[in-house]
């Protein structure tokens, strides 16, 4: 488990990139970190990976301080947004570099998946496209079998088929090896179908975080029509996050309480449809509930 305690990071006196950030990343989960550009996502990953030293606070991994500790770093692998490869190196050579540093590195995995992805393991990486380079970096990272994997803007430059391929690989990795995966994106939709936990970073702080399933079950979207005329007040017993009526049909977003559905059914609606909520919608209404404009945050 990764605990961030009052973590702050400033690059100069006047600008705090992260401010007093605290959160917990549970084990064996895929944790999505979303936030607008400059929110501090990459800085946070660099702090956890001991690339940067916190100005204040600390990172604990399984209860132990993680900064610049080899034993803990062996359990972590980081794929940054801007990739680096040794000049003239091939995928095999890059994988061998990782192999020298990560005791559980699986070279066969790299070669097998490279074949599936039609990546020539002997070819010079400088001849690869941006997307192919990212595939190589992801393969090397996954092959480390590290307990914690950090992916910054993971799927940038990957086409939808390859994205799907890697999402499957990541999920498999998580379930088979009990890995914790932390991925960042400025695009919620990117993380929606893969993460089971989400944190929203805004101006250096975690504005909101939670388990996606709980979020989804805590909130539902309803299309409703009643025999009589109705307005927002009709639903005053519910924790209403959103109300919009077009003609005789209204769309509601309701925060789940014990008897919300019963209250709706007791109104004897002509139409009562429960609709799936997108993650973006969940965030929009959560943010609004917290008093933020979603467009400002993300």
């Amino acid at each position: 488990m990764i605990e961030l305690k009052n973590l702050s990071k400033s690059f100069d006196k006047h600008h705090l990139v992260l401010e007093n950030l605290s959160c917990t990343i549970p084990d064996n989960a895929i944790y999505g970190l979303v936030g607008a550009n400059g929110a501090g996502k990459s800085t946070l990953l660099r702090l956890i990976n001991s690339i940067y030293k916190p100005t204040q606070g600390e990172v604990l991994v399984d209860g132990k301080p993680a900064y610049d500790t080899e034993d803990i770093k062996k359990q972590m692998v980081f794929v940054p947004d801007d990739l680096f490869f040794f000049s003239g190196y091939s995928l095999t050579e890059t994988a061998n570099f990782y192999k020298a540093l990560y005791p559980n590195f699986d070279l066969d995995f790299v070669l097998k998946e490279a074949k599936t992805l039609k990546l020539d393991p002997k070819a010079n990486l400088s001849t690869f496209s941006k997307g192919m380079k990212r595939q190589c970096a992801l393969l090397c990272a996954l092959a480390t079998k590290a307990k914690y994997m950090f992916f910054d803007e993971t799927f940038d430059g990957l086409d939808p088929v390859i994205r799907k391929f890697f999402k499957d690989l990541i999920v498999r990795q998580m379930s088979e090896k009990e890995t914790t995966i932390i991925m960042t994106s400025h695009n919620l939709r990117e993380l929606e179908d893969i993460c089971d936990n989400l944190g929203l970073l805004y101006k250096g702080s975690i504005l909101f975080e939670g388990d996606i399933d709980t979020l989804k079950t805590n909130m539902f979207k309803v299309q409703i029509s009643l025999k009589e005329d109705f307005d927002k007040d009709t639903f005053k017993d519910l924790d209403l996050l959103y109300f919009k009526k077009v003609g005789t049909v209204a769309t509601l977003i309701i925060k789940e309480k014990e008897n919300s559905k019963k209250i709706l059914e007791d109104l004897k609606p002509i139409i009562l449809d429960y609709l799936p909520l997108t993650l973006e919608e969940i965030f929009i209404y959560q943010m609004e509930a917290l008093g933020y404009e979603f467009n400002e945050v993300l």
């Binding site: 990976n49 001991s50 690339i51 610049d68 080899e70 972590m76 980081f78």
Partner: peptide
């Protein structure tokens, strides 16, 4: 990018 690469590796 090279700082990220090197410093994230399991070496103190």
């Amino acid at each position: 990018n090279s700082v990220d690469f090197y410093l994230s590796k399991p070496i103190e």
